[in-house]
Design a protein around this nucleic acid. Structure first.
Lengths: 237, 237
DNA sequence: CGTGGTCTTGATCTACCTCAAAGTGGGTGG
DNA sequence: CCACCCACTTTGAGGTAGATCAAGACCACG
């Protein structure tokens, strides 16, 4: 349900969808960004498309009055920049030590020309991003603090490597700006979920989910429709 | 800045972008939906792509607890269904009497095959939708009631035919569910803007904008970056 | 063993929600 | 043409979830 963060999970469900796109980056050298460093800033001319090799990245925008909004979190395997026009519409900052590969938009475009099936993967990726954005709008406009935090934990649970564990590499203010709340409310809500026995503090930046179903119930998610069923009808691939 | 509503304005800025896509629908018969009727429901198998000829449509989703969220408003010229997977992720309802044309996804796909440049238009459209979604997330997570309403009016002002006039064909509860507030707060905020002399009630479902700059100031928009500048570099077209 | 960044907890405040009632205007039928 | 109705809108009064302000607690780091 994260704006961007869960695209990895989506692509795991359709393993063949974007591997092709990701493979393009293997020829590029791997670069490193230290925690806190910016890969690029909001408003910069958009020259590159990025592929995250390891680490975590936050995607942010700023209001005129200085307020920050976090559009989403990215992790290993995610792509950045597929939806850009001539300028980056948001900034990308390393949460921890990040390894990434980049490719100029020009080169990326040439690769797409060589293998047109990549265009379908692009479309698929963009549609996933739109769906995720809409889910997040729903969260921001209709859900209360507890539902927001539960939804967030659920998303990260589903896309995490270790079953039953949720890792939150970002700090509270990142979560707050992503969920549209304050750090205090995020903290209080997490405490409340612990007291309710739904989650347990496991390690620094990590929680154990005691009851996934309970978490899901508190997330108040919209009904899910099986999107795989009509796969044969899927157009624009 | 609306999630979907301002795509028309965007495409007016790039007049050649999507006309091609829209032209595909001219061969289809025009259909009518009366006010309140649904073009399709959330969760239905996604069989068609729609082109709105006249009238206004609201796009909605529902939470498990019955709360409604309006993703955006569509008007003459807009397309619906380009971002669908196998099922509609939201419902579409006619606000007033609506004329539209539709095309099966299969036929639409075939048209795309025949004229591959349409794929670039698809990509362009989807990227616009993503940008609009992100703007709206920013509104929902960071803006207060007055900023939300001003932003909404500003969007509709920019994409309206009659300069200085904003028409709001939808009812207050539609606006409320779109901006993530209650009908009472929408009403109170509009009244306050009238008292401040920023807008004037002009007709039923219509306001006159006295001071566009004042409206913009109260909207607290993020800084805009000129996206046209790097047009020559635009890839994926 | 400080020190600075992060996180939690508490007390208070407020923007917006909720509940309630009155106002408005278009449509319908007599 | 008027009177009624119904859906929509506005306005008011009071309540509350979450923000804000403030103070400790925790922890990694030099």
């Amino acid at each position: 349900m994260s704006a961007i963060g869960n695209l990895r999970a989506v692509s795991e469900a359709y393993p063949c969808d974007e591997n092709g796109l990701r493979a393009l980056f293997l020829r590029q050298p791997s670069e490193i960004a230290e925690a806190g460093a910016a890969l690029f800033f909001e408003g910069d001319p958009a020259c590159h498309v990025f592929h995250l090799v390891s680490g975590n990245v936050r995607i942010c925008r700023f209001l005129a009055d200085g307020h920050r909004f976090i559009i989403g979190f990215l992790r290993a395997g995610d792509l950045i920049g597929l939806s850009f026009r001539s300028r980056y519409m948001f900034g990308a900052e390393a949460i921890d030590r990040v390894a990434f590969r980049r490719m100029s938009k020009r080169m990326f475009e040439e690769e797409l020309q060589l293998a047109p099936e990549h265009r379908s993967q692009m479309l698929s990726h963009l549609r996933d991003e739109i769906t995720a954005s809409q889910d997040h709008m729903l969260l921001l406009s209709q859900k209360n603090a507890e539902e927001r935090v539960c939804t967030f934990l659920l998303d990260r649970l589903d896309s995490d490597d270790t079953p039953g564990l949720v890792s939150l590499p970002m700090i509270r203010s990142d979560i707050a700006d992503y969920l549209g709340m304050t750090i205090e409310t995020v903290s209080r809500t997490l405490t409340k979920l612990v007291l309710k026995g739904i989650i347990l503090p496991a390690a620094r930046h990590q929680f154990k989910v005691v009851s996934r179903s309970s978490l899901a119930r508190h997330a108040n998610e919209a009904n899910e429709y099986d999107d795989h069923q009509g796969e044969a009808l899927r157009v624009l691939q």
